[in-house]
Amino acid sequence: MAEKESPLHHFELHPIVDIHLGGLDLSINKAVIAMWIGMAVVYGLFMLVGKKGTSMIPGKLQSMLEMSLEFIKGMVKEFIGDEGMKYFNFVGTLFFFILCCNLIGLIPGSYTITSQLVVTGTFAVIIFVMTLIIGISKHGGHFFSILVPPGVPKIMIPVMVPIEIISMLARPISLSVRLFANMTAGHTVLAVLFGLGLSAPMWIGWLPLGFTVIINGLEIAIAVIQAYIFTTLTCVYIGDVIKLH
């Protein structure tokens, strides 16, 4: 029981099925299962609507999905432009997957995979490498002019180039740390409040327990906002390398 009192306890992962291939640890733990559930929920939601056939008068689920897709489409158009529509699939999938994983984590007993820096870091690095590839394949050597902001005097270029390189490299870090920190912090606060509520006597214990309910509501908002910010910034970064200033 002693180790269960740590508010960070629920972030620990223990393998459920041990799989070791060569030097690789491919064990299946709670996080892997939560990720599979997340994928299954996204796939299931869209298949449910797609299989049933879209009707002219949309039902509740269909109109909800259509609204969110329209919303993402507007985001892609705004930040990348019309030629950004080929990245719409990627951005949409990213949004729904992160949103589902964030929301699934709020169900007691499940696991928030976005509270692992490995997961958010992988997303961010993939997006970073993708923007580099898009930029270089679109503009060739001219792509590196992104490191020199327009209207900079020649004498300032040796100063501006390192600054621009640093701000380029900071993007994946801030992208991944933001999502990871928000999720971890929220769940830690919930765990601390819950621990307080359980260890306090009944006459005062209802207070922290009540707060967990309120914070849980706030966490739902944060789950949506963080998924939104993550996808918006992905669009901004892709738009930056396509437009080059």
């Binding site: 640093i166 900071a170 870090i173 801030s174 933001r178 920190a181 906002i225 963080q226 910010i229 910034l233």
Partner: peptide, 22 residues
């Protein structure tokens, strides 16, 4: 409120991340 909160979080992490990378 939501937009402002997201905005604040975005600016804060951007600043810290850039300093750390530097």
């Amino acid at each position: 409120f939501h937009q402002g909160m997201g905005f604040a979080a975005r600016l804060g992490t951007e600043m810290v991340a850039a300093t750390l990378i530097g």
